[in-house]
Computed example of a mutant assay.
Amino acid sequence: MSDIEYEVCIIGGLGHVGLPLGIAFASKRKNVVLYDINEEATTLVRKGVIPFMEEGAETALAGVINQTLYVSTDPSVISKAKYIIITIGTPVDEHLNPNLKQFTNCIADLKPYLRDGQHVVLRSTIYPGITEKARDMLLESGRKLSVSFCPERIAEGKALKELAELPQIVSGFDRDSLREARELFQSITEDVIELEPLEAELAKLYTNTWRYLQFAISNYFYQLSTQNNVDFYKIFHAIKHKYPRAQNFPAPGFAAGPCLFKDTMQLASYSNSNFFMGHAAMLVNEGLPNFIVQRLKERGGLKNKTVGILGMAFKANNDDKRESLAYKLRKLFTLEARRVLCSDAYIEEQGFISAQEVVAAADIVVLATPHAEYAQLTIAPEKHLVDVWNFFGKGGLF
């Protein structure tokens, strides 16, 4: 290939997956261009501002922006890179089946900018078999290309740290593709694991589904205990205290976000809807907001109550609200309570008020997201506190 300006072009490069990855490669002196159509995020990143919370990212960005890291809204930059990394995955539709339209549209839009010798890397979670489908679609362009699937494995907010510390999984359809994928990701970590593309796709889905199932077990035990007026956290402590075989037993709480539910449903679809444990986990985890509302209705009613929700992000100490169950909880309370108040330590949204105002005005306070900032709150004894996480140390019974 000639006229290569960049070693890496990341499509969707200003998102939670693409931006930290681009910074990581650029920090290793690779020339990287982040292609994205988000004009607002483009302006921010060019100024050295990260558009979402990511530990250490702003400092790292300052060291590479306009030096080895560039941002563009012009798709022609795709033609100028050796590696093209796609961070667009496959969501599930309203019927809980994989929705491939966004992904296939991306591949179709990519074709006019392809050149011989480029390597297309799929990075976000995809439905099993999509890497092969993408390869076939791309080869229809007549270009000589390599295609691989190298799944992201990071926890949001910890991406730069984990990209350097966690093993990277790479795959390819032939020896040269696998070698190139390995060399690319060994620039940020030496620990690289090689798989076949289908194996890599399933490894990513299995990982997230396993976590989702674990949370479902805890959430089910929590609901069962609470229904019988038993504080789950007394049992939880007894189980885990100095007992090594229970150390991986997670605490209950909202299992939300853009990955765990979606990936479990993709795996269920891949199994011809025979993955009953996955569907059961979905019912438990997605049903936790309903359980809270129903129990409050049974134990005093909601019709004349003001309910305050603390935390709207999908996980603690983060500003990401995608697929947050706190919003589902708000909808349910809106149907049942006199008034619903919301607050979040990291999300600014119309109608949100401060945590102190929520606590002062609410009859019922529900901790939906255990942000560290809430540890300083004083919640009066007469308030009805719902703390599934046991964040305030008063147990989970309500």
Rank of each mutant, 00 (worst) to 15 (best):
E7C: 08
C9E: 05
C9Y: 00
I11Y: 07
I11F: 06
L14W: 03
V17E: 09
L21Y: 12
A24H: 10
R29E: 15
V45Q: 04
R46W: 09
G48N: 09
V49D: 11
I50M: 13
V64Q: 00
V64I: 02
I65P: 08
N66E: 09
N66K: 10
S72N: 10
I85A: 05
P91F: 14
N99V: 04
L100A: 12
K101Y: 11
N105D: 15
C106K: 14
Y113P: 07
G117N: 09
R123W: 04
I126K: 06
R135Y: 02
V147I: 14
G157A: 14
A159F: 03
Q168C: 07
Q168L: 05
S171F: 12
S171H: 11
F173M: 12
D174L: 08
L178Y: 11
L184Q: 04
P197F: 04
Y212H: 09
L213C: 09
Q214H: 10
Q223E: 14
T226N: 15
V230Q: 10
F236P: 05
F236R: 14
K240R: 15
N248I: 11
F249K: 08
F249V: 05
D263S: 09
D263A: 11
T264L: 05
A281V: 02
V284I: 15
N285Q: 11
E286D: 15
R295G: 05
R295H: 14
G300D: 08
K305G: 13
V307L: 06
G308I: 07
G311Y: 00
F314V: 03
K315D: 01
K315H: 10
N317D: 15
D320M: 00
K321Y: 13
E323M: 09
E323I: 06
L332Q: 11
T334N: 08
R338V: 00
I347M: 00
E349N: 09
F352R: 04
V358M: 03
A360Y: 01
V366T: 07
A368H: 06
A368D: 06
A368W: 04
A375S: 11
T378E: 13
T378K: 13
I379C: 02
I379W: 05
I379E: 01
V386M: 01
N390K: 02
F392C: 05
